[in-house]
Design a protein around this nucleic acid. Sequence first.
DNA 1: GCGACAG
DNA 2: ATCTTGTCGC
Length: 219
Amino acid sequence: MDLTKLEEIQLDCAKRVIKIEVLKEIKTVGGIDVTFESSKENPTKAWACIVIISLDTLKPIYQKIIEDIVDFPYIPTFLAFRELPLMKRVYTEAKSKPDVIFIDGQGISHPRGCGIASHFGVEVGAVTVGVAKKKLLGNYEPPKETRGSYSYLIYNGEVIGVVLRTKDKVKPLFVSIGHKISLEKAIELVLRTSIYRIPEPLRLAHNLLQRLRKQVLGK
DNA sequence: GCGACAG
DNA sequence: ATCTTGTCGC
């Protein structure tokens, strides 16, 4: 594989990212996650799941899982080339589409401005938010211990996202613009959909996949 | 060269 | 991400 070529794709994708609000009303939020059968084998079986919740109740109103084979390895800053195919397929085949989609990973907080959440948003033409459990790059001050507190993630003197506390005294999340949304709105949505550390759409999608994986592995 | 390094 | 058990704190 030629990583230089893939870097060019990411740079081109970054130019097409829209960093402002385009939605006037948001009623549903979705989350897409991927899990793998094996962490060692390279071509390996994998599953992608989308869960859509109602912003009013925070309860799921739609969910779908697809299965496929993944052969691209995990390489830091190139995550999209491993997980995007599965994510795009589960989204395309879903009979219902959410107003906004949370993606497990970075949005524009990426060395070339195109993490998986932005990449997905641009390719699918959807509104997305990057919700990562760890930082990929940038510097920040620890946010206060109370839920709702946040500090800015800075890279090259620019704000590329926030470090957001979604639960008191629990490790914060790294939230960034994915596509067609403002950072302020992204923060508001992640907070509004978080009961536990991880926002409901992603937490539920992750839980469904973990249960399926254990079932398949016979445990 | 050394440390960092989404999932 | 996955590999893995119990354990401490709210």
